[in-house]
């Protein structure tokens, strides 16, 4: 349903053009959960902001193609894009503490979104808001619509944000680290909720996270990003059990285990992710890669069919 082809995003800055996204392609099928993993600066958030049409920077240059159910989104008129946002594609953000306008009630903010997209009265919109809050397991939804964001706990607020995102039954929901700011026990509740909503609403979900554990619990397919490129993609089992790209492997190895024997030292990746201003030539993971060889001075293409890795080592069978 969502087809992204060769997406390139760059920013004009005083240091010249900075390429944030370099030829990213991916698909999302109806009612599947695609997990997008990467560290800060990997471009995972910005590529999905592009899908939302939410890159407002006048210095941004966006090229490539983003098709939602066959309709091209790049170059779409602002007013047309606005009609899609919130109705066809919705997005929830990382920090529920600041995601809602502090001076309006939860009910008002949910009803606002419904009323913008549908011909519906305020009463009917509020009634829908109550149903939505009930659906995301907020206790006493009738009272909750009268609450202001600051009166709810973090977990409850994230539920309200999710209810708002679902209010127009979007075909695609983009969740940008929706549980990172929450406590572990609350995170478990929200992950349960997201799985349940996928079953009920049949929305496709793109789940952005840096946490491989969260991926294991939610995603069907996974896409691993590193400095603006997709380095590996495949099903959850393929990525977590038989990672092909050295970066994916190293990332999985650097997570301390929760059970069994403690390793004396953690396997870590030397160095830090490259600055976008100064990307290495060829494979951008090259300088930190343990299995680097001569060929890595060229840019590796993403090859290998369904389970693809952008690495010369693995592409050769």
């Amino acid at each position: 349903m969502l087809e992204v082809r060769d997406l390139r995003i760059s920013f004009r800055t005083e240091h010249g053009r900075v390429r944030a996204i370099d030829g990213v392609s991916f698909d999302v099928a109806e009612s599947e959960i695609l997990g997008v993993v990467g560290e800060s600066g990997s471009g995972k958030t910005i590529s999905l902001l592009a899908v939302m049409g939410l890159i407002n920077d006048p210095n941004a240059v966006i090229e490539g193609s983003i098709k939602l159910r066959g309709r091209e989104l790049i170059g779409l008129k602002a007013s047309e894009m606005r009609k899609l946002r919130g109705r066809e594609i919705a997005m929830i953000f990382q920090d529920p503490m600041t995601a809602m306008t502090p001076v309006y009630t939860i009910g008002w903010q949910i009803a606002e979104q419904i009323m913008v997209h549908e011909r519906i009265g305020k009463k009917a919109a509020l009634a829908r808001a109550i149903d939505l809050l009930a659906e995301v397991n907020i206790p006493n939804p009738r009272e909750a619509i009268e609450r202001y964001p600051h009166q709810l706990s973090g977990g409850m607020r994230q539920r309200a944000v999710i209810a708002m995102a679902l209010s127009c039954n979007p075909a695609l929901l983009i969740a940008d680290e929706p549980t990172t700011a929450l406590d572990v026990t609350v995170q478990a509740q929200i992950l349960d909720l997201i799985r349940k909503l996928r079953r009920v609403h049949k929305s496709a979900i793109v789940f952005i996270t840096h946490d491989m554990g969260v991926i294991a619990e939610t995603a069907d397919r996974v896409m691993v990003m590193y400095s603006g490129r997709v380095v590996e993609r495949g099903t959850k089992a393929e990525i977590l059990l038989e990672p092909r790209h050295p970066y994916t492997k190293a990332l999985l190895d650097s997570i301390p285990p929760l059970e069994g024997e403690k390793p004396r030292r953690l396997k870590s990746i030397p160095g830090s992710p490259p600055s976008l201003l100064d990307l290495p030539k060829g494979c951008s993971f090259g300088p930190r890669c343990p299995s680097r060889f001569d060929k890595c001075a060229e840019k590796p293409p993403l090859e290998g069919g369904a389970h693809a890795a952008a690495c010369f080592l693995k592409a050769a069978p």
């Binding site: 939410l54 606005r82 953000f93 809602m100 606002e112 913008v116 995102a165």
Partner: peptide, 16 residues
């Protein structure tokens, strides 16, 4: 602010 991004994601007009 983050809530302005949320408002944009809701599909509201810039004036609103």
């Amino acid at each position: 602010e983050d809530y302005i991004r949320t408002a944009r994601a809701k599909g509201l007009s810039e004036t609103r």
